[in-house]
Amino acid sequence: MIPIVVSHLTALDENIDHHFPSLSTEKYDWIRNPFMNIPSNIGLQLCEEEELATISSDRDLKTKHSTVPIDSFWISVQEEYPTLSKKALSLLLQFSTSYLCELGFSTLNNIKTKKRERLRSTEEEMRVCLSHIRPNIEEVAKKHQAQVSH
C-alpha cells in the first residue's frame, strides 16, 4: 500500500508543479513597498518607472503608506499617478474578482435547478443571494398585514 500512496503523491506533486509553476514575486515587490530600492528589470514601462521614482521620493506618501492598507494606498494615489496605480490595482484585485465571479456562478447554479429551469429572470434572486446585507425579518413582517378570513 505504501508504494501506491507514494507514487500517487509523487504524481500529484509533478502535476501541481506543471499547472502552478512557482512565480517570482520579486518583480512585484514595488507594489508592496514602492519606497525600497527597486531594480530596473521588473517589467515596467518608462512612464511607470518615472511615476515610481516620484512616489518613492515623496515623504508624505511614505508616511501614508505605513498607516493605510496597501490597496487603499494605491487607490489614494490614483489621480496623481494613474498609470502605476492602475497596474498595481489590477494585480491586487485580480484574486478577489475571480472569487466573486465563482461565487456568482455557484449562486446561479443553485438558483437554476432542474425544477426551476424555466425561470427567466434571476436578477432579483441573485441580488438577494449575493448581498452582504441581511434582511431584518421582524421589520418586514411588521409591515405586512396578516391574512384575515372573510
Score class of each variant (00 low, 15 high):
46 L>C: 09
52 L>D: 13
43 G>A: 01
59 R>Y: 09
74 W>T: 08
58 D>L: 00
52 L>P: 15
70 I>N: 10
68 V>T: 11
49 E>S: 06
59 R>T: 15
43 G>I: 13
50 E>K: 13
64 K>W: 01
76 S>V: 10
80 E>V: 01
49 E>R: 14
56 S>W: 05
60 D>Y: 02
44 L>V: 15
74 W>L: 02
63 T>E: 08
78 Q>E: 11
52 L>R: 04
82 P>T: 02
78 Q>P: 09
46 L>S: 14
80 E>Q: 12
71 D>P: 09
46 L>I: 15
70 I>V: 14
73 F>I: 14
67 T>S: 03
53 A>N: 10
83 T>A: 00
46 L>V: 13
80 E>P: 02
73 F>M: 05
83 T>Q: 14
73 F>T: 15
45 Q>M: 06
84 L>E: 13
54 T>R: 08
62 K>L: 08
81 Y>H: 14
63 T>M: 00
64 K>N: 01
75 I>S: 06
70 I>L: 01
84 L>P: 15
51 E>R: 05
44 L>R: 11
73 F>K: 05
48 E>D: 02
47 C>I: 15
55 I>H: 08
80 E>L: 00
69 P>T: 10
44 L>Q: 06
74 W>D: 05
45 Q>A: 07
55 I>G: 07
54 T>W: 03
73 F>W: 05
51 E>S: 09
69 P>R: 04
83 T>V: 10
47 C>W: 12
76 S>P: 15
84 L>R: 12
62 K>S: 01
67 T>K: 09
60 D>C: 00
44 L>Y: 12
65 H>D: 03
68 V>A: 00
83 T>E: 09
45 Q>P: 06
70 I>K: 03
83 T>G: 00
75 I>N: 08
45 Q>E: 12
68 V>L: 04
59 R>S: 13
64 K>F: 02
79 E>P: 10
45 Q>Y: 10
54 T>A: 04
63 T>K: 00
52 L>C: 11
59 R>D: 13
65 H>F: 05
74 W>E: 03
58 D>Y: 02
80 E>Y: 01
54 T>K: 09
56 S>Y: 08
51 E>G: 05
77 V>K: 01
63 T>D: 07
58 D>N: 15
58 D>W: 03
84 L>Q: 14
66 S>R: 08
45 Q>D: 10
70 I>M: 04
76 S>A: 13
62 K>G: 02
46 L>R: 11
65 H>N: 04
51 E>P: 13
68 V>F: 02
57 S>P: 11
62 K>T: 06
74 W>P: 13
53 A>V: 12
51 E>D: 14
72 S>A: 10
46 L>A: 13
66 S>A: 09
56 S>D: 07
82 P>K: 03
54 T>E: 08
75 I>T: 12
67 T>E: 06
59 R>V: 07
68 V>S: 05
80 E>K: 05
73 F>Q: 03
43 G>N: 09
77 V>T: 15
71 D>N: 06
63 T>W: 01
71 D>R: 05
46 L>G: 03
48 E>L: 01
61 L>R: 02
68 V>Q: 04
76 S>K: 06
73 F>N: 08
49 E>P: 11
65 H>S: 03
79 E>G: 04
71 D>M: 08
56 S>F: 10
59 R>L: 05
43 G>Q: 12
76 S>I: 11
